[in-house]
Amino acid sequence: MAQLICNNLALGYDGKKILDGLSFSVNVGDYVCIVGENGSGKSTLMKTILGLQSPIEGKILTCDGLERTEIGYLPQQTEVQRDFPASVKEIVLSGCQGRCGLRPFYSKAEKQLSDSNMKRLGISDLQNKCYRELSGGQQQRVLLARALCATQKILLLDEPVSGLDSKVSLEMYNIIEELNKKDKITVIMISHDISAALKYASHILHIGRNMFWGTKQEYSESEFGRVWA
């Protein structure tokens, strides 16, 4: 069943297109990898899906009971200032904010949700630590836990392993795979690591001058697969 449908999308900034004629649909439980060169518009696509900017043409539909605000997001580079004082707990809990609506304070259930997400990502013992004093890998886990607080359905990850060493990257990939397989959370991930994309993903979206959308088998059999993989 389709959860997210993009129809003939054109994206860009200030009316200038960077991508044109993009169509694909993501089903519940899919693991989509978005690949493409630097500057090809991957992050822009993600921001458009999130509603942070509007598409120049075309439509993005969410179906199957998915609300636009139920999308968990892991940004590429957090524009968190170096000196921002915030504890891990505060950040993870802020992921629940979307479901609060106008209610000013967090409910007990939301606090439990954030506790269980911290436990799931193995950062419970860091919860009172200051975010800016964590290592890159720990920071990514904190942000993933926050994203999980915002959704039980679909995760958008913008280069979740960039800057992590191979061991921590592997852990990160395993966590994401588990969320996808066990919890049936749809994953849409931007990655520069084609071999990992081919290993974990079910579908590949290649954007750039030539576009490709299909399952990973189709991808590796296509000319893209021969060039890139």
Binding site: K47, L50, T78, S94, G98
Partner: peptide, 10 residues
Amino acid sequence: FDENFAKATG
């Protein structure tokens, strides 16, 4: 803390 994330979650 993170305006984009806040916007994305409504």
